[in-house]
Design a protein around this nucleic acid. Sequence first.
DNA 1: CCATGTTTTGTTACAAGTAACATTATCATA
DNA 2: TATGATAATGTTACTTGTAACAAAACATGG
Lengths: 336, 336
Amino acid sequence: MKSPNMKNKRPTLQDVADLVGVTKMTVSRFLRNPDQVSAPLQTKIAEALEDLGYIPNRAPDILSKSKSHAIGVLLPSLTNQVFAEVIRGIESVVEPAGYQTMLAHYGYSKEAEESRIATLLSYSVDGLIISESYHTERVRKMLAVAGIPVIEIMDSVSPPIEQAIGIDNEAAAYAMTEFMIKKGRRKIVYFAARMDQRTLFKIKGYETAMLDNGLTPLCLKTNSASSFTLGATFLKDALQQQPDTDGIFCTNDDLAIGALYACQKAGIKVPQDIGIAGFHGHDISRAMVPLLTTVITPREEMGRLAAEHLLSRLQGNPVSQRIIDLPFKIEAGESV
Amino acid sequence: MKSPNMKNKRPTLQDVADLVGVTKMTVSRFLRNPDQVSAPLQTKIAEALEDLGYIPNRAPDILSKSKSHAIGVLLPSLTNQVFAEVIRGIESVVEPAGYQTMLAHYGYSKEAEESRIATLLSYSVDGLIISESYHTERVRKMLAVAGIPVIEIMDSVSPPIEQAIGIDNEAAAYAMTEFMIKKGRRKIVYFAARMDQRTLFKIKGYETAMLDNGLTPLCLKTNSASSFTLGATFLKDALQQQPDTDGIFCTNDDLAIGALYACQKAGIKVPQDIGIAGFHGHDISRAMVPLLTTVITPREEMGRLAAEHLLSRLQGNPVSQRIIDLPFKIEAGESV
DNA sequence: CCATGTTTTGTTACAAGTAACATTATCATA
DNA sequence: TATGATAATGTTACTTGTAACAAAACATGG
């Protein structure tokens, strides 16, 4: 035997070949198409593979072909249920197609984004799904140099690097604000957390709608992550700053639900005294009492579509549509 | 120039070296420790790297060292908030340590688990975090052959392959059932979805506690995933099968909250008429009205600890403790 | 039974870094 | 200035699978 595996290392094709008495090329052929190998050898090779517990090694293939059969997914955070659902959508497409997902997150920091993208590229991912529409020059250059398909998700407004799939957050916030105004709300306060680009778009939509209707916008902001507790805190602040507040529009469902429960505890009637609206339409908002008024966003579909378009591009198809603007929906609910 | 990059491929160390007029070895040295290279070259190499937009390529390193600086994470599902939080915990440790996460899920299917593990191993992950305590012979063999550290999470009871970090689901369910009994509940029904191993443990804990107290267990089961809607459906079923039901213990918070809202809609008072308890203690359960009675499990900590122990093992430390049994907590809440 | 075609197996080279060793340049001191 | 030490750079080999080409084995028909 040439190089018996005495080092207790994972067996290689060579080890299998040695065991059978052929060259590793023959074993390699068997693995990809057994019929390329004579019948007796098929049996022996299959046995040897099983015997040694051979597990293929992608590294050489990645090295020579620069293709890893993995796609990189870079999201701002994993804390947020929104992104968990996006991941689910991506996985539902990518996994059956035989691709592996490499997940990374950058905590809303631009430097971290640069380094995460470099890392993902260093693994030779075949394609990337990233979020946020603003990227540094460095990031743009890296992506250009890498020459792999890139899809941006979440936002459908800014001009994409190649292709964007998302919703128009500003329009959605505008629509919800108008909805609340139509329902007779006048003193509507906006609760904003995690001041990322999407939140800024939403604030703009809210403020524009207020001003368009001759009303005065009031926005409570913080950079920390949203939570139920934060919704309760914001409620207190809002009532202090504007005691006659009759509407609250939150940048996401968490804040809205937190505010709603805080109202219940404080004896404030929803929607009679204050109307509360959320954003996203998570499952809980469609089950709770009262049903939450919210903007339903296609989070899972966004992931699914992004993955589908990415795979299509990996098969050589060109970008079919630079911006895919997915519809949102105003869910009337019972809380406004 | 030797091999100018005319093929529009991502630049290699050789391309950078050619541009500077040195060998790639010099550039390689610069990248890992700039001071190994003379001052004038440092400047020139840095410029060339920037100029070409060089991105390191991990493949050759993975090939020669069989180390990828990536760890594989295999979970049953991504649909479940529990696992999203586990992932968050893992990432919070793994990412700052400079490791990359490769995420996979297997939808509770044993064959899928085999194939996902093979895939992760084929990428030469340095370590694995997996869940569920039962694994096929094939899986065990693959892991043995791969010779990388493996940590099993979620369950702290079954004998681990190497190391397990989790909670004692049976004990937790027993404790909650006893708590409900102490609160005066007698006709307690268990709502079970997704009949995985953890659910089976919980059912056992519930049934034992009921029998130990001379009560008759009744368990509603389904193999589908849990949801708020399912909680409502189960409530209807329970009241039909046992009209004098005075307690409901759910395999997770989703079912419990779904059942609770269904009660509110049906005019059934919680906890006066029926006491409801959940499992996990997600954020929502600690914010809602009434506060949910639930078992608080350390999901994020589980991920964090698993990652920490894995990294420690990757640094050559031995398994310090084969089973790490994390504490759960009965949260009294207001719904029982 | 040989020529030709077809099937099966083997050989060689290559992908992009880096370890290990080899060589050359630089410098201080005898 | 020669010597040896040290710093800076170069060379070679290696990692594992597979493409591309080469050779051998076997089959078929005239």
